[in-house]
Design a protein around this nucleic acid. Structure first.
Lengths: 124, 124
DNA sequence: TACCTAATTAGGCATTTAACTAAATAGATA
DNA sequence: TATCTATTTAGTTAAATGCCTAATTAGGTA
């Protein structure tokens, strides 16, 4: 389960337009970096992209994008896997799934608590 | 539906520890401000709290908490309703529900896209 | 009217953030 | 080895953030 610090890190990471757009594109596989398909050891999805491919789509210098990617990785919502001199980036679906689950639980608990509250009223 | 700007605003709002904790407490109704129960016009939940009640639970000055609340309100994840000289604060469950829904859709689409991709492979 | 409570606004200050360029590191290839 | 490609690190700067205190606004109450 995601603890509070981790959740805050994720929100902070996604609370910046550039990082949000980077994440969006990594997640939806908007642009793909060619991966050597002959190499049987490749365990990456063909949607995986690399730092410079992402940077091409933004009006920011490469180090800026690199730093943003680092923050998304530290929030654990993307993975970065080195292969040769390239780094392949993929969304971390598990973290997103967990975060989504947190919101679902939050909303469900809210409804339950409201119901319990009004039950108390009718009984009192 | 929440647009991109709105989502980023929400993430930014929750990406700060103090605001996250304020939101948590408003949401879970951790502390409640007494509401005049005799007034039949009160449409607020008895979980609603007010600015100074929230501020009591933090080691920050009142204006600091007030500013954080403003940011949470602008992100539309809480509501602030003036009654007399107090402002009653409640979570905005609809926004949270919508946000949760976005994550669910994101994860579902991801699965679907993966399935479609591997289908293509076996057919190719 | 004068005072009290609740909250916001204004102004200031220290820290963090987000960008840049230049330099360094790591791995490929000629 | 020298060079090319991919990426990160270092150092700088401007703007934003998060906090404070003091002053102001708004709504009750004596």
């Amino acid at each position: 389960m995601l603890d509070m610090k981790q959740k805050i890190k994720i929100f902070k990471a996604l609370g910046n337009e550039t990082r949000f757009l980077i994440f969006k594109n990594v997640f939806t596989g908007g642009y793909t970096c060619s991966i050597d398909k002959k190499d049987k050891n490749v365990k990456l999805s063909p949607h995986a992209t690399c730092v410079s491919t992402i940077a091409e789509h933004f009006d920011f210098a490469l180090p800026t994008i690199s730093k943003h990617l680092k923050e998304l990785r530290e929030a654990d919502i993307i993975t970065m896997q080195k292969k040769g001199n390239k780094i392949y980036i993929e969304p971390n679906i598990e973290t997103i799934r967990e975060l989504g689950g947190c919101f679902t639980v939050l909303v469900e608990n809210f409804e339950t608590n409201r119901e319990l509250f009004f039950e108390d009223i009718t009984q009192g």
